[in-house]
Design a protein around this nucleic acid. Structure first.
Length: 418
RNA sequence: GCGGAAUUGGUGAAGUGGUUAACACGCCGGAUUGUGGCUCCGGUAUGCGUGGGUUCGAUUCCCACAUUCCGCCCCA
């Protein structure tokens, strides 16, 4: 038997309905915020994701799905959405004639070559937005607001952790200070953190082992190394969030490891028991577009893990409304009844009723069982004798009342009793 | 890449080195020859993740692999 690949999954049944519902929420909110939908390729040139200094071989090795195609090209399945969008932006030279910022959202499958565990699969879906072309705090707020409101509409109470990395100058100053602070304490850190100091020092701050140690708690924080402009910016961000009544929590140890991030970073958490991971996160990445051979161009974005959000929704006991009952089940026995049934079924469907019938010639008893399984609101039971006078039996499956109705009045009758 | 636990039907699961692998739900059929849902009766794994090995005999013991869950790493 052929089984599914590690870290992949099939989505069907109720789970699929829930996801369609979440999609609708996302679509609705993105329309209101005026982000337009974008799809980019699942696979891209490997360099798009493994780029620049410090991210190859001896330093951070990203856990991506890489392969060489028949043309000897090095290909990578996208591990996140931002890089593809930025590539699209640059490749199409959208910066050439920008009268407004570019605002897009995506909602697509991503791939990471990781060992599956709670809330983490190899194939997963991310919803995200990117706002390219504004360096104003208003843009950061726009993205955070959209993120927060999405969760709220989904029925999740979330809190947003925010921090700022400052501009490049502030950021570099901070990084140096952090390394200088940590190095003398090397012995007190876990093995992983000893390595992190040289590879990715900011990550030491959210180490699971050392995170609670006093050394880390006493480590310098980004706020102390901001220049004036960066600090003003951060304060302005908080003012806006207050104004919009978006609850947030400052977390001076919240960092993002990559060099192109600056200023605003945020992550979204919930207090729901058993959900101890971030549902989503984002930040400003003014350095990325230049890094990918585009112009100097500010941008800010957000992405949420679909699967994690679904876990949170289930854990929170959020009741997702989706249609699981049908409106009408049409029953027949004889061949002539069956033909009429087929006509009635199509007619009902075209008039807006979710309608089912028997495809297996089960007979009345089996059809009643099916109708119950589908939780049909109405049963239409055909018999040849009534059909002679163009009538059918309509049974209200809740009240159990049954009435003979003329076929031509069927739609009106159901509309009235629905 | 590293570590821990698990894997028995459509589903939830019990179980044993040796004739027919409990039980429950579901499903199918009948009692009930065109109005069901209750009840009763009957059927429903040629098989115990896959492949090897030990054994007279393996679902049960051993090994490898796969998948799932949990943790590490990584977290864009």
């Amino acid at each position: 038997m052929i089984t599914k690949q590690k870290g992949t999954y099939d989505i069907y049944g109720e789970e699929a309905k829930k996801r369609l519902y979440v999609n609708d929420i996302i679509k609705g909110i993105c329309e209101k915020y005026n982000y337009t939908y974008i799809e980019t390729p699942v696979f891209e040139a490997t360099e798009l994701f493994h780029r620049g200094v410090g991210e190859t071989s001896d330093v951070v090795k990203k856990e991506t799905y890489d392969f060489v195609d028949r043309g000897e090209r090095s290909i990578t399945l996208r591990p996140e959405g931002t890089a593809g969008v930025v590539r699209w932006f640059i490749e199409n030279k959208l910066y050439g004639n920008m009268t407004e910022p570019v605002k897009v959202y995506y909602n697509e499958k991503m791939y990471r070559y990781e060992r599956p565990q709670s809330g983490r699969n190899r194939e997963f879906t991310q919803f995200g937005v990117e706002l390219i072309g504004s360096d104003d705090v208003m843009a950061d707020v726009d993205v955070i607001s959209l993120a927060y409101q999405t969760y709220t509409l989904l029925g999740l109470d979330t809190k947003i952790k925010i921090n700022t990395l400052g501009d490049n100058e502030s950021r570099l100053k901070y990084k140096d200070a952090l390394i200088k602070y940590l190095e003398p304490h090397m012995d007190e850190l876990c093995e992983d953190c000893k390595e992190r100091i040289s590879k990715n020092p900011l990550r030491v701050l959210d180490c699971k082992i050392d995170g609670e140690k006093d050394i880390i708690k006493g480590a310098p924080i980004t706020l102390d190394y901001l220049n004036e402009d960066s600090l003003n910016r951060y304060n302005k961000l908080k003012d806006y969030l207050d104004l919009l009544e978006i609850p947030y929590e400052e977390d001076p140890r919240l960092v993002r490891g990559l060099d192109y991030y600056n200023h605003t970073v945020f992550e979204i958490y919930t207090d729901i028991e058993g959900v101890n991971f971030a549902l989503g996160g984002g930040g400003r990445y003014n350095g990325l577009i230049k890094e990918l051979d585009g112009p100097e161009m500010p941008a800010v974005g957000f992405a949420m893990g679909y699967d994690r959000t679904m876990i949170a929704i289930d854990a929170a006991g959020v009741n997702i409304p989706y249609k699981k009952d049908i409106d009408v089940y049409v029953m027949y026995v004889s061949d002539s009844e069956k033909e009429t049934a087929s006509y009635i079924v199509q007619n009902l469907r075209l008039n807006g009723f979710t309608t089912e019938t028997d495809y297996l010639n089960k007979g009345l008893k089996g059809e009643f069982k099916s109708a119950d399984r589908f939780n049909a609101k109405f049963l239409i039971i055909l018999n040849d004798k009534d059909l002679e006078s163009n009538e059918v039996n309509v049974k209200d499956n809740v009240t159990k009342e049954e009435e003979k109705v003329n076929i031509n009045d069927l739609i009106d009758y159901l509309d009235m009793h629905d």
